[in-house]
Design a protein around this nucleic acid. Structure first.
Length: 476
DNA sequence: TTTTGAGTTGTTCGA
DNA sequence: GTCGAACAACTCAAA
């Protein structure tokens, strides 16, 4: 009997899973295996919110495997040892997996591939996570892109329409004697119950991901181009954590989008967002130092402020006194997610107004986001800080008051996450420090008591940021 | 090699 | 209130 190990990593789905399909086509028995090995992810071990998601996603995967006649085997790392061990236990001759693109994962997988091949095993990897792999979209001589638009043009020219693969109808059973660790033994869930908001906001797993895609296409795609920028609205797809864990793949999304010709505008706009995800992976693969170091080397000696503990805590906990920033940071803390528009505003405030190193922000997002993804997080923070690919020009400092008035004109987003300001009327809710004393009193808000005074003056901190950025060296 | 056009997401100021 | 210009040159990408 030929046996193939299917090593699940961040491709936690049965549909459009090329490694799984190939395993089923070429072996009589397939062993679905997940190995818990966070220490192999170097400085970017999954954060608390990611671990919560992973726990439930693995449970969902095990459930769908069982419905198809199999089950998920769970082991602990080191990954190579676990693969060898399961190989011995099952007599597997092949090991297949879908590729990852983080520098630590690339290095590990390459070493594992060599070692297993030296053992005499057949090892193959596949692409489940991206429309095009990082090395497939390049400039003339194979150099990587650093600007989104030409990258996007090339991606388009190459075509996006490779169809997703079908889900297997049935899987061969596993021998009952094969031992699996329990999910609980991985201790992925928090010991203190802070995950209520996550449970309310999300349902991890492949079927929930498909349901969300269908809901998005049915309800939000038409207005996507505008509504996706409105944090109070349900205008985004909400697919980011599902994509991160591979509960859904981009090919499946593209196919669903392309089936909606009558909503071509929204579909095109969302396709572009998917392309940003592709671009982020492209950059991380070709510039593997960027999770920790600026892509633009002029920033190596940029005068970041020493991150003073109290200010950083205020930002993390949504106590900066800037309503839109605080709303976003509290949404993040409670739901494990923050609206994209507000991510930019909150990040810009930390990096430009407070001039705290972008890595401090990146690390906090890493720990608290359910969609924490090294490629996207790195691109996002470096973009805001001005030191990344296609970075925001240095003079682009988001004004959280204007952004609030423009994108949360009713103030409902702030009201939802900063309830102590809920009774303030509309323009005032975005800058309570400028509201008349009588108004504040009438709605029972004492600044500095019920809600903080701003930790930074927007005007002067902006000017100081511009001065610091102006002082950047012209070249390295 | 040289040249040319273009570059996610903004704010402020003055007319 | 609305509009255009300034912000600052530089790098990227392609011809």
């Amino acid at each position: 009997m030929t046996t193939t190990i299917l090593w699940f990593r961040r491709d936690l789905r049965l549909a459009d899973n090329p490694a799984l399909l190939k395993a089923l086509q070429t072996a009589e028995r397939v062993v679905p295996l997940f190995i818990f090995a966070p220490e192999e992810e170097a400085g970017w071990k999954p954060g608390a919110a990611s671990r919560w998601w992973l726990r439930h996603s693995l449970a969902a995967l095990d459930e769908s495997l069982r419905q198809a006649g199999s089950r998920l085997l769970i082991r602990r790392g080191p990954s190579l040892d676990a693969l060898r061990q399961v190989g011995l236990e099952t007599g597997a001759g092949q090991i297949y997996w879908n590729r990852l693109y983080e520098p630590a994962a690339v290095a590990r997988d390459q070493a594992i591939k060599h070692a297993l091949r030296a053992d005499g095993l057949r090892v193959e990897s596949f692409n489940s996570a991206l429309l095009r792999e990082p090395w497939q979209v390049t400039r003339g001589k194979g150099e990587p892109y650093k600007v989104f638009t030409p990258y996007w043009n090339t991606l388009r020219r190459q075509g996006l329409s490779e169809p997703p693969l079908p889900a297997p109808a049935a899987l061969p059973p596993l021998p009952p004697a094969l031992h699996s660790l329990s999910l609980d033994s991985l201790a992925l869930l928090p010991t203190i119950p802070w995950d209520g908001g996550l449970r309310q906001a999300w349902r991890p797993g492949e079927s929930a991901a498909m349901a969300r895609l269908e809901a998005f296409i049915g309800e939000a795609l038409t207005g996507y181009a505008q509504d996706r920028d409105r944090p109070g609205h349900p205008g985004t797809s909400g697919l980011s954590p599902h994509l991160h864990f591979g509960e859904i793949g981009p090919r499946q999304i593209v196919q669903a989008l392309q089936a909606r010709e009558e909503q071509a505008g929204g579909a095109e706009c969302h396709l572009r967002q998917l392309a940003w995800r592709e671009f982020a992976h492209h950059l991380l693969f070709h510039f593997p130092h960027t999770p920790e170091s600026p892509l633009d080397r002029r920033f190596q000696h940029f005068p970041w402020n020493e991150a003073d503990h109290d200010t950083l805590r205020a930002w993390q906990q949504g106590r900066t006194g800037i309503p839109l920033v605080d709303a976003g940071m509290r949404e993040l803390w409670q739901t494990g997610w923050m609206h994209n528009r507000v991510r930019m505003v909150a990040a810009s405030f930390l990096v430009k107004n407070l001039r705290v190193h972008w890595l401090e922000g990146a690390r906090w997002f890493w720990d608290t986001l359910v969609d924490a993804n090294l490629a996207n997080n790195t691109l996002g923070w470096q973009w805001v800080a001005g030191c990344g690919a296609d970075a925001a020009p240095y003079f682009r400092v988001f004004n959280p008051v204007l952004q609030g008035e423009r994108f949360d004109p009713s103030g409902d987003y702030v009201r939802r996450w900063v309830p102590e300001l809920a009774r303030l009327p509309c323009p005032a809710i975005h800058q309570p420090w400028a509201a008349p004393a009588a108004l504040l009193e009438s709605v029972g808000v004492r600044l500095g008591v019920d809600y903080p005074k701003p930790v930074a003056d927007l005007k002067t901190s902006r000017e100081q940021a511009l001065a610091a950025y102006r002082g950047l060296p012209k070249t390295v």
